[in-house]
Amino acid sequence: MLSLYVPGDSVVHRARAGLKLAVLAALGIGLFLVESPAAMAGALALVVVVGVTAARLPWRALAVQVRPVWLWLALLFGFHLLATDLRTGSVAVLRLLALLVAAAVVTATTRVTALVAVIEWLAAPLRVFGVRPARIGLVLAMTLRFIPLVAEKAARIREAQAARGADRIRLGMAVPLLIQVLRMATTVGEALDARGADDAPARRPRRTAAAS
């Protein structure tokens, strides 16, 4: 439903999500250690080539993710021309562009579920603090389910208030809406507990690590 993922079966698509995130993180650190415009231009060219040829992404898929910051990049470049010099400005702008395109490539070639799985894996050490990774998956799934529900309830309350002649009181609709959805969330939480999804470990013998 909601995704920036572009389906495909290229090498980049098939690479493990954790590996792609690790490369992205390394790039994010690495590019800040270098200060030469040529290296930045090379890095940008490399990530574009990886995105367009190796991952076979359409240009549009990359442009959609980079477009929102064009203006900011232009302003940044202009600021550097005035305040510092051409070299510093081009390094800053090229570095940001390379990082943005690299992140766009990872997002476009990796399914939301695969990234959520990486998040669950990364959260595993938090078990020490009593966090259960499976509960994280539950919260993420619930959020995706709640988004259309909240939007629909908001639309209904707006209609109801318009029918009573309220023209455009946005604040007035927030309170009944919040109370409605809070009630709904309470019910959902209680339903989950009733089906044995609650935290109390005593309810069921704990599964061994091998089972999962």
Binding site: R135, T143, A197, D199
Partner: peptide, 21 residues
Amino acid sequence: MKSRDLAYVALFAAIVAVLGL
């Protein structure tokens, strides 16, 4: 955390998302 708390957490994450619309 109780499931109810998880539901509240998910609810407000969803509310922030809907506000983005």
